[in-house]
């Protein structure tokens, strides 16, 4: 079974803020981490490899330093990491990201299952997975919380929707995006850590993928960010202390003013 897991390196969300007055970025001590959801995607890939045999390849597109995310993925037990990196890839929106990832998946000879996280915590779009599936013309199940093989090429997937959970069956090759409920990621193993340190991480460039500049990065993107700004400041804050009955009365008063039904 060929398993590909797509991971993204992201800044730890809570550290990224704009100063409400100067609009400067407050980025003190921002760490880069593997997108938390992608760890669940990786864990699921590893579990399927243990169950069905095969290999787990971790794929990321990003600047050269994104290599660290791949090495980290290897410490959990992935077989290999591939970095897609080229100056031409910079500024990619989800369309161009998915398009580039799709070219890499093809170059790798395809996969039986591709796992993505539910969404990345920087852009919060949740679009790259489904767009990648569309470019590869394979079926997809988003928001999976449980996978069961019912044949060598068929998966039953329990997935989260707004009304609860649906059970669907999908034919491989397929792409699955996972929610955190699906598993409990393992800890890195000592052995894998040693291997990860020594591993060579192949880097694919624009020409390696057989793409042209107009298909990737900012040039290949259909969306443009035209403005970034801090969210509107919250209104007047009010902190009350006192006896519970007084506090409850204050709360009740506020609820009445809000005309809730």
């Amino acid at each position: 079974m060929k398993i590909i897991v797509c991971v993204k390196q992201v800044p730890e969300t809570q550290d990224v803020r704009l100063d409400p007055v100067t609009h400067n970025l407050l980025r003190e001590g921002v760490k880069s981490i593997i997108n938390p959801f992608d760890l669940y995607a990786l864990e699921e890939g590893l579990r399927i490899r243990e169950q069905q045999g095969g290999t787990v390849t971790v794929l990321t597109m990003g600047p050269p330093q994104a290599e660290a995310a791949l090495r980290e993925a290897l410490t959990y037990g992935a077989d290999q990491g591939i970095l897609l990196s080229d100056r031409a890839f910079a500024g990619a929106d989800t369309w161009a990201t998915a398009f580039t990832l799709a070219a890499a998946v093809r170059k790798l000879g395809g996969a039986d299952v591709i796992f993505c996280g539910k969404q990345a915590i920087d852009g919060d779009t949740a679009q790259v997975g489904p767009e990648l599936a569309a470019f590869l013309d394979i079926p997809q199940v988003a928001w999976a919380r449980k996978l069961t093989f019912v044949g060598p090429e068929r998966l039953q997937v329990e997935r989260l929707l707004d009304h609860g959970y649906d059970l669907v069956e999908v034919q491989l090759p397929a792409l699955i995006t996972v929610v955190k409920e699906i598993n409990e990621p393992r800890l890195p193993s000592f052995k894998a850590k040693l291997k990860a340190k020594a591993a060579t991480i192949p880097v694919y460039s624009l020409s390696d993928l057989g793409l042209t500049e107009n298909q990737v990065g900012l040039k290949g993107s259909f969306t443009r960010v035209v403005r970034v700004f801090p969210p509107p400041a919250r209104g007047q804050r009010e902190i009350l202390q006192g006896a519970p009955e007084e506090l409850a009365a204050a709360l009740w008063g506020r609820l009445q003013q809000m005309h809730l039904r």
Partner: peptide, 16 residues
């Protein structure tokens, strides 16, 4: 909103 609501972004789709 992006970055978990810490930043707002305005986006255009200008050529498609």
């Amino acid at each position: 909103p992006a970055f978990g609501g810490n930043i707002m972004a305005t986006i255009l789709t200008p050529r498609s």
